[in-house]
Amino acid sequence: MILYDYVLSASCYKVRLMAALVGERLDLQAVDFHPGREHKSASFRDLNPAGTLPVLVDGDLLLTESTAMLVYLATKAGGWMGSGAVNAAQVQGWLAFSARLGASLGMARLHDMLHYPVDIAAVRRAGVDCLRELESHLTEARFAGRIFLVGDGPTIADIACFPNVALAPDGGVALDDYPSIRLWMRAIRSLERFIEMPGIHRLHELKPAPEAV
């Protein structure tokens, strides 16, 4: 399985993380997203006319939407999709919500890191609205003794939403005021086989003390 990848992209990280969690090996092809804008080049658009990252190729299958890649990796491995009508529908709801996170918190980060021309106040405000919705939902889940978005265990919904939330401070949106989101992120960061990206770390408590390395 080949993933056309940019290491700092939240969407690419979603797919790398999902693959790691289900134990799928990816052949990573680095694309010079910044500053090279290679994803907009004619030769890259021969592969993906939309000129976006990530792109996943497995034999004849070519996927250009990260949520579709999560569905593919999870379904192949089994689990992670939410079982039953209610949970499956809720997973789809959170996949759509993850697009709102990308358009708000994700755009604020691209603005601050790569100078994307967006109305920064508007995208940050939309990002805070998303965080409040997420916090309220996770708070209710905790009342019921749960910590993940849907049902009792982690699903692709968590993986789709986690990166842009965890990276929100890169776009000037603080996470200080969301205790349930903090505990949800800890639960994800402590999943077995969790992998990191620049700006997102595994729970340090689970790593050996530095002097022991």
Partner: peptide, 15 residues
């Protein structure tokens, strides 16, 4: 500055 339920053992938070 916060609620006990939001600060389990092993956690740090801003206030």
């Amino acid at each position: 500055v916060g609620l006990s339920r939001d600060l389990p053992a092993g956690v740090a938070m801003p206030a």
